[in-house]
Design a protein around this nucleic acid. Structure first.
Lengths: 154, 154
DNA sequence: GTAACAAGGTTTAATCGTCAACTATTTCCT
DNA sequence: AGGAAATAGTTGACGATTAAACCTTGTTAC
Protein backbone atom coordinates (compact mmCIF):
# COMPACT_ATOMS: atom_id res chain seq x y z
CA UNK A 1 0.00 0.00 0.00
CA UNK A 2 2.74 2.43 0.85
CA UNK A 3 4.98 3.56 -1.93
CA UNK A 4 8.22 1.81 -1.13
CA UNK A 5 11.65 2.92 -2.13
CA UNK A 6 13.23 1.25 -5.11
CA UNK A 7 16.62 -0.36 -4.78
CA UNK A 8 18.67 2.64 -5.83
CA UNK A 9 16.78 4.94 -3.54
CA UNK A 10 17.15 2.49 -0.70
CA UNK A 11 20.87 2.28 -1.23
CA UNK A 12 21.29 6.04 -1.38
CA UNK A 13 19.14 6.52 1.67
CA UNK A 14 21.08 4.06 3.76
CA UNK A 15 24.42 5.38 2.64
CA UNK A 16 23.26 8.81 3.66
CA UNK A 17 22.04 7.62 7.06
CA UNK A 18 25.27 5.88 7.91
CA UNK A 19 27.55 8.53 6.45
CA UNK A 20 25.75 11.33 8.20
CA UNK A 21 25.92 9.56 11.53
CA UNK A 22 29.62 8.85 11.14
CA UNK A 23 30.45 12.38 10.08
CA UNK A 24 28.44 14.04 12.79
CA UNK A 25 29.91 11.76 15.40
CA UNK A 26 33.43 12.42 14.25
CA UNK A 27 33.06 16.19 14.26
CA UNK A 28 31.57 16.07 17.74
CA UNK A 29 34.25 13.76 19.02
CA UNK A 30 37.08 15.87 17.64
CA UNK A 31 35.75 19.03 19.23
CA UNK A 32 35.24 17.37 22.58
CA UNK A 33 38.61 15.72 22.62
CA UNK A 34 40.64 18.71 21.53
CA UNK A 35 38.65 21.68 22.77
CA UNK A 36 36.15 20.43 25.31
CA UNK A 37 33.24 21.68 23.21
CA UNK A 38 30.29 19.77 21.83
CA UNK A 39 29.24 20.35 18.25
CA UNK A 40 26.06 22.21 19.25
CA UNK A 41 28.05 24.36 21.64
CA UNK A 42 30.50 25.15 18.89
CA UNK A 43 27.71 26.07 16.53
CA UNK A 44 26.24 28.48 19.01
CA UNK A 45 29.60 30.16 19.42
CA UNK A 46 29.82 30.49 15.66
CA UNK A 47 26.45 32.19 15.48
CA UNK A 48 27.41 34.60 18.20
CA UNK A 49 30.75 35.38 16.60
CA UNK A 50 29.07 36.31 13.34
CA UNK A 51 26.59 38.72 14.89
CA UNK A 52 27.18 42.45 15.33
CA UNK A 53 28.85 43.02 18.68
CA UNK A 54 28.82 39.24 19.10
CA UNK A 55 25.40 39.42 20.74
CA UNK A 56 22.26 37.54 19.77
CA UNK A 57 18.94 37.06 21.49
CA UNK A 58 18.25 33.61 22.84
CA UNK A 59 15.11 33.19 20.78
CA UNK A 60 16.92 34.10 17.61
CA UNK A 61 19.63 31.54 18.25
CA UNK A 62 16.94 28.98 18.88
CA UNK A 63 14.97 29.79 15.75
CA UNK A 64 17.91 29.99 13.42
CA UNK A 65 19.45 26.77 14.64
CA UNK A 66 16.18 24.97 15.08
CA UNK A 67 16.95 24.30 18.73
CA UNK A 68 14.24 24.30 21.36
CA UNK A 69 14.09 27.24 23.71
CA UNK A 70 14.90 25.04 26.61
CA UNK A 71 17.87 23.55 24.85
CA UNK A 72 19.27 27.02 24.28
CA UNK A 73 18.79 27.86 27.93
CA UNK A 74 20.63 24.75 29.06
CA UNK A 75 23.43 24.95 26.55
CA UNK A 76 24.06 28.65 26.99
CA UNK A 77 24.03 28.13 30.74
CA UNK A 78 26.84 25.67 30.32
CA UNK A 79 28.77 28.01 28.05
CA UNK A 80 28.24 30.82 30.54
CA UNK A 81 29.48 28.63 33.34
CA UNK A 82 32.64 28.03 31.32
CA UNK A 83 33.07 31.76 30.80
CA UNK A 84 32.62 31.61 27.03
CA UNK A 85 29.34 33.49 26.93
CA UNK A 86 27.59 36.07 29.08
CA UNK A 87 23.91 36.79 29.43
CA UNK A 88 22.28 40.18 29.80
CA UNK A 89 18.75 41.51 29.82
CA UNK A 90 17.45 42.94 26.58
CA UNK A 91 17.02 46.73 26.84
CA UNK A 92 14.04 47.04 24.60
CA UNK A 93 12.13 43.92 25.59
CA UNK A 94 11.81 42.99 29.22
CA UNK A 95 11.32 39.35 28.31
CA UNK A 96 14.41 39.13 26.19
CA UNK A 97 17.79 37.78 27.13
CA UNK A 98 20.85 38.40 25.02
CA UNK A 99 23.80 36.06 24.83
CA UNK A 100 27.16 37.69 24.30
CA UNK A 101 30.34 35.97 23.22
CA UNK A 102 33.16 36.81 25.61
CA UNK A 103 36.76 37.29 24.57
CA UNK A 104 37.56 33.93 26.08
CA UNK A 105 34.73 32.46 24.05
CA UNK A 106 36.05 34.03 20.90
CA UNK A 107 39.53 32.71 21.53
CA UNK A 108 38.22 29.25 22.20
CA UNK A 109 36.14 29.39 19.06
CA UNK A 110 39.10 30.36 16.92
CA UNK A 111 41.07 27.42 18.23
CA UNK A 112 38.20 25.04 17.77
CA UNK A 113 37.42 26.29 14.29
CA UNK A 114 40.72 24.99 13.01
CA UNK A 115 39.88 21.51 14.21
CA UNK A 116 36.33 21.71 13.01
CA UNK A 117 37.08 22.94 9.51
CA UNK A 118 39.79 20.37 9.14
CA UNK A 119 37.27 17.70 10.09
CA UNK A 120 34.64 18.98 7.71
CA UNK A 121 37.15 19.05 4.90
CA UNK A 122 38.66 15.72 5.63
CA UNK A 123 35.36 14.00 6.29
CA UNK A 124 33.31 15.49 3.49
CA UNK A 125 34.38 18.48 1.43
CA UNK A 126 37.68 17.11 0.20
CA UNK A 127 36.39 13.68 -0.71
CA UNK A 128 33.26 14.56 -2.66
CA UNK A 129 33.16 16.32 -5.99
CA UNK A 130 32.07 19.92 -6.33
CA UNK A 131 28.91 18.90 -8.09
CA UNK A 132 28.09 16.39 -5.39
CA UNK A 133 28.51 19.01 -2.70
CA UNK A 134 26.41 21.39 -4.72
CA UNK A 135 23.72 18.73 -5.03
CA UNK A 136 23.80 18.09 -1.31
CA UNK A 137 23.41 21.78 -0.54
CA UNK A 138 20.61 22.17 -3.01
CA UNK A 139 18.78 19.05 -1.88
CA UNK A 140 18.89 19.86 1.81
CA UNK A 141 17.92 23.44 1.22
CA UNK A 142 14.73 22.03 -0.26
CA UNK A 143 14.37 19.73 2.72
CA UNK A 144 14.65 22.69 5.06
CA UNK A 145 11.96 24.57 3.20
CA UNK A 146 9.72 21.53 3.10
CA UNK A 147 10.04 20.62 6.74
CA UNK A 148 11.14 23.75 8.52
CA UNK A 149 8.97 26.13 6.60
CA UNK A 150 10.08 28.88 4.26
CA UNK A 151 11.49 30.92 7.14
CA UNK A 152 14.32 28.46 7.64
CA UNK A 153 17.14 30.93 7.24
CA UNK A 154 20.75 29.88 7.15
CA UNK B 1 46.32 29.07 8.52
CA UNK B 2 43.52 26.59 8.21
CA UNK B 3 42.05 26.07 4.81
CA UNK B 4 38.66 27.70 5.16
CA UNK B 5 35.56 26.88 3.18
CA UNK B 6 34.69 29.16 0.31
CA UNK B 7 31.29 30.75 0.17
CA UNK B 8 29.61 28.08 -1.91
CA UNK B 9 30.97 25.31 0.25
CA UNK B 10 29.88 27.16 3.35
CA UNK B 11 26.36 27.56 2.01
CA UNK B 12 26.10 23.90 1.03
CA UNK B 13 27.48 22.76 4.34
CA UNK B 14 25.06 24.81 6.36
CA UNK B 15 22.11 23.82 4.25
CA UNK B 16 23.08 20.23 4.80
CA UNK B 17 23.43 20.69 8.56
CA UNK B 18 20.05 22.30 8.97
CA UNK B 19 18.23 20.06 6.52
CA UNK B 20 19.64 16.91 8.03
CA UNK B 21 18.68 17.99 11.51
CA UNK B 22 15.14 18.85 10.44
CA UNK B 23 14.68 15.63 8.52
CA UNK B 24 16.02 13.41 11.24
CA UNK B 25 13.93 15.16 13.83
CA UNK B 26 10.80 14.84 11.79
CA UNK B 27 11.24 11.14 11.15
CA UNK B 28 11.84 10.50 14.81
CA UNK B 29 8.90 12.60 15.87
CA UNK B 30 6.53 10.87 13.47
CA UNK B 31 7.51 7.42 14.66
CA UNK B 32 7.18 8.36 18.30
CA UNK B 33 3.86 10.07 17.89
CA UNK B 34 2.22 7.40 15.78
CA UNK B 35 3.93 4.19 16.82
CA UNK B 36 5.74 4.86 20.08
CA UNK B 37 9.08 3.98 18.52
CA UNK B 38 12.22 6.05 18.27
CA UNK B 39 14.09 6.16 14.99
CA UNK B 40 17.00 4.06 16.31
CA UNK B 41 14.55 1.51 17.69
CA UNK B 42 12.83 1.36 14.35
CA UNK B 43 16.12 0.86 12.56
CA UNK B 44 17.02 -2.04 14.78
CA UNK B 45 13.69 -3.69 14.05
CA UNK B 46 14.36 -3.23 10.34
CA UNK B 47 17.73 -4.96 10.61
CA UNK B 48 16.20 -7.84 12.49
CA UNK B 49 13.34 -8.19 10.04
CA UNK B 50 15.75 -8.49 7.13
CA UNK B 51 17.86 -11.21 8.69
CA UNK B 52 17.28 -14.95 8.20
CA UNK B 53 14.90 -16.13 10.91
CA UNK B 54 14.75 -12.53 12.08
CA UNK B 55 17.69 -13.11 14.37
CA UNK B 56 20.92 -11.15 14.58
CA UNK B 57 23.74 -11.11 17.06
CA UNK B 58 24.01 -8.04 19.23
CA UNK B 59 27.54 -7.28 18.07
CA UNK B 60 26.52 -7.48 14.46
CA UNK B 61 23.69 -5.03 14.95
CA UNK B 62 26.10 -2.73 16.71
CA UNK B 63 28.75 -2.94 14.02
CA UNK B 64 26.45 -2.54 11.08
CA UNK B 65 24.59 0.39 12.53
CA UNK B 66 27.64 1.95 14.10
CA UNK B 67 26.05 1.90 17.53
CA UNK B 68 28.05 1.29 20.65
CA UNK B 69 27.73 -2.09 22.31
CA UNK B 70 26.21 -0.53 25.33
CA UNK B 71 23.70 1.38 23.29
CA UNK B 72 22.55 -1.84 21.69
CA UNK B 73 22.19 -3.44 25.08
CA UNK B 74 20.08 -0.58 26.41
CA UNK B 75 17.94 -0.17 23.33
CA UNK B 76 17.31 -3.87 22.85
CA UNK B 77 16.46 -4.11 26.53
CA UNK B 78 13.74 -1.54 25.96
CA UNK B 79 12.46 -3.34 22.89
CA UNK B 80 12.45 -6.59 24.80
CA UNK B 81 10.55 -4.98 27.63
CA UNK B 82 7.93 -3.90 25.09
CA UNK B 83 7.73 -7.43 23.73
CA UNK B 84 9.03 -6.54 20.29
CA UNK B 85 12.28 -8.46 20.59
CA UNK B 86 13.55 -11.47 22.50
CA UNK B 87 17.07 -12.36 23.53
CA UNK B 88 18.65 -15.77 23.56
CA UNK B 89 22.10 -17.20 24.09
CA UNK B 90 24.15 -17.97 21.03
CA UNK B 91 24.62 -21.74 20.58
CA UNK B 92 28.04 -21.63 19.05
CA UNK B 93 29.59 -18.85 21.08
CA UNK B 94 29.06 -18.70 24.79
CA UNK B 95 29.63 -14.97 24.84
CA UNK B 96 27.12 -14.22 22.16
CA UNK B 97 23.57 -13.00 22.55
CA UNK B 98 21.09 -13.12 19.72
CA UNK B 99 18.22 -10.69 19.34
CA UNK B 100 15.10 -12.10 17.72
CA UNK B 101 12.22 -10.11 16.31
CA UNK B 102 8.95 -11.33 17.77
CA UNK B 103 5.69 -11.51 15.84
CA UNK B 104 4.49 -8.49 17.78
CA UNK B 105 7.68 -6.72 16.81
CA UNK B 106 7.17 -7.59 13.18
CA UNK B 107 3.60 -6.32 13.23
CA UNK B 108 4.65 -3.11 14.88
CA UNK B 109 7.40 -2.67 12.33
CA UNK B 110 5.04 -3.12 9.42
CA UNK B 111 2.75 -0.44 10.79
CA UNK B 112 5.61 1.90 11.51
CA UNK B 113 7.20 1.35 8.11
CA UNK B 114 4.27 2.96 6.38
CA UNK B 115 4.72 6.11 8.43
CA UNK B 116 8.45 6.06 8.06
CA UNK B 117 8.59 5.56 4.33
CA UNK B 118 5.97 8.25 3.84
CA UNK B 119 8.15 10.60 5.87
CA UNK B 120 11.30 9.75 3.97
CA UNK B 121 9.52 10.29 0.69
CA UNK B 122 7.80 13.46 1.70
CA UNK B 123 10.82 14.92 3.43
CA UNK B 124 13.51 13.97 0.96
CA UNK B 125 13.02 11.48 -1.86
CA UNK B 126 10.06 13.15 -3.52
CA UNK B 127 11.47 16.65 -3.39
CA UNK B 128 14.98 16.09 -4.69
CA UNK B 129 15.91 15.04 -8.19
CA UNK B 130 17.13 11.55 -8.97
CA UNK B 131 20.60 12.82 -9.71
CA UNK B 132 20.69 14.73 -6.43
CA UNK B 133 19.71 11.64 -4.51
CA UNK B 134 22.28 9.65 -6.41
CA UNK B 135 24.90 12.27 -5.54
CA UNK B 136 23.93 12.15 -1.89
CA UNK B 137 24.22 8.39 -1.80
CA UNK B 138 27.54 8.41 -3.58
CA UNK B 139 28.97 11.20 -1.45
CA UNK B 140 28.02 9.68 1.87
CA UNK B 141 29.19 6.26 0.83
CA UNK B 142 32.60 7.86 0.44
CA UNK B 143 32.21 9.50 3.82
CA UNK B 144 31.46 6.14 5.38
CA UNK B 145 34.54 4.61 3.87
CA UNK B 146 36.67 7.57 4.90
CA UNK B 147 35.48 7.73 8.47
CA UNK B 148 34.08 4.33 9.29
CA UNK B 149 36.67 2.33 7.49
CA UNK B 150 36.22 0.12 4.46
CA UNK B 151 34.23 -2.40 6.46
CA UNK B 152 31.30 -0.04 6.76
CA UNK B 153 28.73 -2.31 5.22
CA UNK B 154 25.22 -1.15 4.51
C1' DG C 1 -7.65 50.66 30.54
C1' DT C 2 -7.94 46.14 31.16
C1' DA C 3 -8.67 41.41 30.16
C1' DA C 4 -7.17 37.76 27.24
C1' DC C 5 -3.76 35.93 24.67
C1' DA C 6 0.95 35.42 22.67
C1' DA C 7 5.91 35.25 23.21
C1' DG C 8 10.48 34.76 25.75
C1' DG C 9 12.84 32.15 29.08
C1' DT C 10 13.55 29.16 32.83
C1' DT C 11 12.77 25.08 35.51
C1' DT C 12 11.80 20.31 36.58
C1' DA C 13 11.60 15.55 35.61
C1' DA C 14 12.04 11.80 32.54
C1' DT C 15 14.51 9.68 28.63
C1' DC C 16 18.37 8.39 25.91
C1' DG C 17 23.24 7.81 24.87
C1' DT C 18 28.03 7.62 26.44
C1' DC C 19 31.73 6.29 29.20
C1' DA C 20 34.30 3.36 32.21
C1' DA C 21 34.37 -0.61 34.82
C1' DC C 22 33.35 -5.30 35.06
C1' DT C 23 32.31 -10.48 34.05
C1' DA C 24 32.49 -14.23 31.06
C1' DT C 25 34.06 -16.55 27.06
C1' DT C 26 37.12 -17.39 23.29
C1' DT C 27 41.40 -17.00 20.67
C1' DC C 28 46.20 -16.77 20.20
C1' DC C 29 50.83 -17.95 21.20
C1' DT C 30 54.40 -20.72 22.99
C1' DA D 1 47.92 -27.44 27.88
C1' DG D 2 48.06 -22.85 29.92
C1' DG D 3 48.20 -18.00 30.42
C1' DA D 4 47.73 -13.40 28.05
C1' DA D 5 45.06 -10.83 25.26
C1' DA D 6 41.02 -9.99 22.61
C1' DT D 7 35.93 -10.15 22.09
C1' DA D 8 30.85 -10.08 23.69
C1' DG D 9 27.86 -8.20 26.48
C1' DT D 10 26.05 -5.90 30.69
C1' DT D 11 25.87 -2.50 34.27
C1' DG D 12 25.61 1.97 36.69
C1' DA D 13 26.63 6.71 36.83
C1' DC D 14 26.65 10.78 34.38
C1' DG D 15 25.56 14.38 30.76
C1' DA D 16 22.61 16.20 27.34
C1' DT D 17 17.97 16.74 25.16
C1' DT D 18 13.12 16.88 25.49
C1' DA D 19 8.54 17.85 27.19
C1' DA D 20 5.46 20.11 30.18
C1' DA D 21 4.53 23.34 33.62
C1' DC D 22 5.40 27.79 34.97
C1' DC D 23 6.43 32.94 35.39
C1' DT D 24 7.08 37.18 33.36
C1' DT D 25 6.51 40.71 29.91
C1' DG D 26 4.26 42.38 25.52
C1' DT D 27 0.50 42.71 22.45
C1' DT D 28 -4.17 42.79 20.92
C1' DA D 29 -8.98 43.80 21.13
C1' DC D 30 -12.81 45.51 23.20
Amino acid sequence: MTNWLDEDQQRSWRAYLLGTALLHERLDRDLRAEHDLSLPEYEILVRLSEAPERRVRMAEIADRMNFSRSRITHTVARLEHDGLVERTQCETDGRGVIAILTDAGYDRLVEAAATHVAGVRDGLIDIVSDTELEAIGCAFAKVSVRIGGPDARL
